[in-house]
Design a protein around this nucleic acid. Structure first.
Lengths: 146, 146
DNA sequence: CTGGCTGCAAATCTTTTGCATCCTG
DNA sequence: CAGGATGCAAAAGATTTGCAGCCAG
């Protein structure tokens, strides 16, 4: 999507596309690292040294309300953001806090008794464990102890 | 479990059972509201006006490390605690932030390609939607608008 | 031109930490 | 009586807010 198309798209969504927002969008586009607000801030602040956290949070919240991004509650320390709003799942490394996408479409249903009267709108699965890098570190530790 | 049995149990786990900890444990026991640290603090502070947050967090962390409770990452605003450490799932009300248990044992597996090299240790499913009370409120709103 | 956006700073909220003192085992 | 636990207060982090000015549409 080129810049003109982006302007059209976000204008249709009722969002003004400022240079700061464009920079945030371009950082997020295709980004699969599930960055935190701070990581997004650190990156765009390189181009806009006057960038403030208020703008980052404001933009992320506007994008979330328009269904363009997901706010993830997976990392216990901070919110992480996912530029892919299509429902999908995640694997979380409990050691380094890496988050990786899982595209598998599980057909998970709650029976009416199980849903306890809730109107269920969706579900998210978080697999957790150790990423390849952290597994290696664990092995190194063990070897040092022997 | 009576108090004597609790002392034995926690002593075996390597935890000193102080009156403050006992009060926290008794508040958590059978509690399915998934309270936050602040809610736990507010409750036990009634019996122990000198109670500090440090003690609440310290106790919760000790219990978590011994596998006695779960720290839930479901409510984006704060950690919530679950006295039931047996793996299970949850439904989350996005409006009032109520969390309800789901005991259904889904057999969810990740293929080796899907797990991207992670050593997967477990998974948690969060269903989200509106609880019965918040559905009613939504209906009332609609009626007011008509 | 006007309503939404930005930047700044202060405030808020949750959680953590250092440390002196206390008390369980 | 030793090591872990408590209480207090301050600090640390993440996120939100108020507000004056700015600028995209």
């Amino acid at each position: 999507m080129n810049t003109t198309e982006k302007f059209q798209k976000y204008r249709q969504l009722g969002l003004k596309l400022t240079p700061q927002r464009l920079a945030i969008l371009e950082f997020l586009e295709g980004n699969t690292s599930h960055p935190s607000a701070d990581e997004i801030y650190q990156h765009v602040a390189q181009q806009f040294p006057s960038m403030s956290f208020a703008t980052v949070y404001n933009t992320l919240d506007a994008l979330r309300r328009k269904g363009q991004i997901l706010e993830l509650c997976i990392d216990p320390n901070k919110k992480r953001f996912d530029p892919n709003p299509i429902p999908h799942h995640h694997i979380f490394c409990t050691k380094c806090h890496k988050i990786v996408d899982v595209e598998h479409d599980y057909q998970i249903e709650l029976s009416s008794e199980e849903s306890k009267g809730f109107k269920v709108m969706g579900c998210n699965i978080v697999f957790w464990g150790l990423c390849p890098e952290c597994q290696k570190e664990e092995l190194n530790k063990e070897n040092l102890n022997n």
